[in-house]
Every structure is written in structure tokens, then in C-alpha cells.
Design a protein around this nucleic acid. Structure first.
Lengths: 146, 146
DNA sequence: ATGTGTATGTTGGTGGCGCCAACGTTGGCG
DNA sequence: CGCCAACGTTGGCGCCACCAACATACACAT
């Protein structure tokens, strides 16, 4: 493999985005086997943790655009992983609810994702993993406000 | 902002990919003002550092698919930032060369990118920045072989 | 020299993710 | 009542990563 330009190789944003590619690939490998993708996992995870939610709520929790939530929920609904019913209290909203089948799927995706984390952080010690996670967390929360 | 699911929030791959979104956004903001995008910067940086190169070489250096190199070089050529000539020693190859105008553009992009790094790492101390960069580097080089 | 395999450039297409504009419906509030 | 805001939905866009197929041209063994 030829050397990559130093201008890139030492820039945090380069390291970050390139490593994110690997992270996405590792996670995706497990997801595709289950016929899913990242958006599906996010929605299922949010529903499992917080219960019934409107699509707008899901979008805010999962950092997804409203329009993308529509597609994801529709796909999940077609596979029987969620149910979508109109909220009687507010006829603008849909109440999205995870099904038993959906929870099963979520477990499956969880296992794949845990495996991906291990693969991703392979060469790091437990200490280093914790440090990395902490630093990334600091930066992410910082950038989610400004 | 509603809470994001814990399943996501504490997963390194989530932190990584979400932060990469911010990194990409910060970099892009500067790039679009110059009428460029990431692929253009990569190619220009490689040409500036290693001189004339074939497109396949550029692809390997910059982690880009051959077909994407074609598009990027074509766009850079249209703007006068690179020149593409056939290699007389190997008529399969194109020799891609950065122009003076291209170097100017590269400098402009460099400034934008440096600004993006600062914005990205804002809340971190110099020490922490170095630690983060090191850990990311370890992981990236690890995943570029397996 | 001939054939086989491989590298290169090119075209065209796919998918995930993030994002935006517009529209109709519905609720909330002055 | 009228205005504004929120919601779901449709349709579209851009960037990035990736793949398959093809024609050309080189490299090498036989």
C-alpha cells in the first residue's frame, strides 16, 4: 500500500472519518445478515428504551431527519418489527410501538453490534478504550449544542 | 433535545460515526466555499506531496475507488487544478500533475481544514488532543491491514 | 511468438447516510 | 377567528464508498 499524504494522515478529522468508515463497515456486516441497516437499529433501540414514541420524537432521539424516520418506520412495519397507529390525543402524530418480533430483532442486532465493537477496538487495552470513549463523548456532546 | 438511547450513546462506533459527521460538516463548510469537496482535497494533497502520479496510485494513496478518482480528476482538470496526460512509458496510465493554480487551491483548502480541526477539537486540551490522535491512529493503521 | 494473466482507465450503477423544501393536516394560542 | 408551530409525508439532492463490466495495454511464462 502506498503512503497516504501526511496532510491527511495526521489530521484528526481524517483519522476520525476514515475510522468511522471501518466502524460502519463492521456494524453493517452484522446488520445486513439480519436484513437491517443503521437507521433500523436506532429506531428499535429508542423504542425499546423509551417505549411508544412519535416519529418526530424518534428523529430527535436518534439524530435522524423526519423524512428518514418515515422510511425507516415503514420498512420496520413491513417486517412486523413495529406497529404504527394514529395518536387519538393528537391526530397529527403517529404512535410507534415495537413488537415482540421487533425486540427479537433488536437482540440480534445488539449481538452483531457488540461483536463489531470488539473488532473495532481490537488492539486497544481496556484503559485505552475507556479513554477513547471518554474523549469522543466529550467532543460529541460539545458539538451537539453549538 | 430528547435523550438518545443508551444503547447508542455508549457505543464507540456510535460516538465515532456521529462525531465523524460533525468532522465532515466542519470540513465541508470550508470546502464548499472553495467549490471543492473531500475527494478533491485528497487528490491535490497526494499530488503535492508525491508529485506526478497515475490515477490508480492516487486511489491507493487516498483510499479512493478507481472510478471515483476518475471523476475527481476530471473535475479538478475542468477547473485547471490538475493536468492529465498519457504516460509514454505505459500507455495505460495517465500522469496526473498539479498545476500552480491547483497548489493555490490546496493552500486555500488547507486553511479551511486547519480551522475545522480547531473547531472539532475545541474542548480538548493539547494533551488530550494528542492522546486522541494517537489512539485513532493506532486503530486506523490496524484496520487498514486486516 | 504466443497466450495468459494482470493492471489501468472508464462507464454506469447501487446503497447508506445526512439534509432540505414543500405540502396538507392538526393543535395551540393570542 | 386567525395566526403560527408541529407533524407526517413526498420527492429530491449531495457526498462517500463500493461494485461489475469492458477495452486497452503491459508483463511474463511457455
Amino acid at each position: 500500500m502506498e503512503d497516504t499524504p501526511a496532510r491527511l494522515a495526521d489530521k484528526p478529522s481524517w483519522l476520525l472519518t476514515q475510522l468511522a468508515v471501518h466502524a460502519h463497515r463492521l456494524a453493517s456486516e452484522g446488520f445486513v445478515e439480519a436484513g437491517a441497516r443503521g437507521y433500523h437499529y436506532r429506531v428499535l433501540a429508542a423504542l425499546d428504551e423509551f417505549g411508544v414514541a412519535s416519529q418526530a420524537e424518534l428523529g430527535r432521539r436518534c439524530n435522524m431527519d423526519r423524512s428518514d424516520v418515515v422510511a425507516a418506520v415503514t420498512e420496520l412495519e413491513e417486517k412486523g418489527f413495529v406497529e404504527r397507529t394514529q395518536d387519538p390525543k393528537d391526530r397529527r402524530r403517529n404512535m410507534v410501538m415495537v413488537t415482540e418480533l421487533g425486540r427479537t430483532q433488536l437482540c440480534r442486532l445488539d449481538r452483531a453490534l457488540d461483536q463489531a465493537q470488539d473488532d473495532l477496538l481490537g488492539p486497544l487495552s481496556a484503559q485505552e478504550r475507556q479513554t477513547l470513549t471518554r474523549l469522543l463523548g466529550v467532543l460529541l456532546t460539545h458539538h451537539q449544542r453549538g
